[in-house]
Write a protein that binds this DNA or RNA. Structure first.
Lengths: 196, 196
DNA sequence: TTTTATTTTGACATTTTTGTCTAACAAAAT
DNA sequence: ATTTTGTTAGACAAAAATGTCAAAATAAAA
């Protein structure tokens, strides 16, 4: 539809993504998004018709981007361990940039989550799970349902970042100290998962 | 204030807790809560004055309950491993009953989260962390910043349950199969954390 | 039984947020 | 230069949600 391409559409998307997924303001109103982007609220409707459609759009974008990068890792021609290290790197970077992305999906799953979930590819996941099973046979990782292995991986990566606002006061650590902890996570996780 | 004690106040709290923390309807309106409880919406204001105060109330209740049970585990006179097993049991049960409790805290941390966080005790946590450090010296668990150990524990416990709505379609497993996976988590986690 | 205090309810008011419509504006095409 | 098309802005309408008030209902007390 837009032909002049003033960059406003992308600006609105980027701003919304920043507000919702980076700053965690999951209830941001259209007004707040418009203000943050420095555009009139009507523009938002002009480009996306409704708040829900805007949100669907940014979520789809985000998910597609991440999925693609993760799939590349999972399907790459490397050892299982290197693959996993790459997944950790990709995922960790994404989580640090947009910590609230998945939280958003979960909290909003009642509203329009069902639709969004449909789009998730599970092909590469299946293949990665298969490889995990092979590694378990070989004995390089602990034997268990491979789904546990993957859930362990995602859990160890995501949860501390999501919970940062709670953990900083709970553990009485400064922003800087916590950042250091997060930086250490990658190694910690590899050690934990590949210790056998 | 209430003297006749008709049970309505508690009924409203229980219903709200169920809706928000168990069913994950984090944006439940006062009307929805009132309907679910089978009372007039005004009663909700009569007892709690405002929506925010109601929500603060149920959250404080929930947190206090869980904290107390966890503190009991952490301070009990048992070995570190048994302590940890108890924590897992307590936490897992709570997470299964009210999976969205922590998600709620995180998403709502901007609104009134800061106040709620103030109340969190970190005394028992400190003492548990100290014990973890001792175990690392002894060599029963991997050496790392004890905070990592605790974050690992909470992550492995919480995240799969929070993500259930996403994981079920992603891994193509039925409700029943997923339930089985969750039941296995306790053992998996102990094995992972105490493998040395 | 009347009185009193407490609880519950329905109607109304306010606030917040979303969505629409039309006019002004800008840039390219004719 | 003017027409056409696409974009932005302001005013308005509608919807959704919260909050208030006074009257009705209920249960205990006098």
């Amino acid at each position: 539809m837009p032909l002049k391409n003033t960059g406003t559409e992308q600006l609105i998307k980027d701003t919304a993504k920043q507000l919702l997924f980076a700053e965690g303001k999951l209830h941001a109103t259209t007004q707040e998004i418009a203000d943050a982007a420095g555009v009139n609220r009507t523009s938002l409707h002009y480009y996306f018709r409704s708040r829900d459609l805007l949100i669907s759009a940014i979520f789809q974008d985000a998910m597609q981007g991440l999925s693609q990068r993760l799939d590349e890792c999972m399907l790459s021609e490397t050892s299982f361990k290197v693959k996993t290290e790459n997944i950790i790197a990709v995922f960790l970077r994404d989580m640090i940039l947009f910590p609230y992305q998945e939280t958003f999906l979960i909290t909003e799953i009642n509203t329009f989550g069902k639709k969004l979930i449909g789009n998730i590819q599970s092909g590469p996941v299946k293949s990665y799970l298969k490889e995990a099973a092979d590694e378990m046979e070989k004995g390089t990782i602990e034997k268990m349902n491979p789904i546990h292995f993957l859930m362990n991986l995602f859990s160890l990566l995501s949860y501390p970042i999501i919970m940062a606002p709670l953990y900083k006061p709970l553990f009485r650590v400064s922003e800087k100290e916590f950042q250091k902890l997060i930086d250490e996570r990658g190694k910690i996780i590899i050690n934990l998962l590949f210790r056998k």
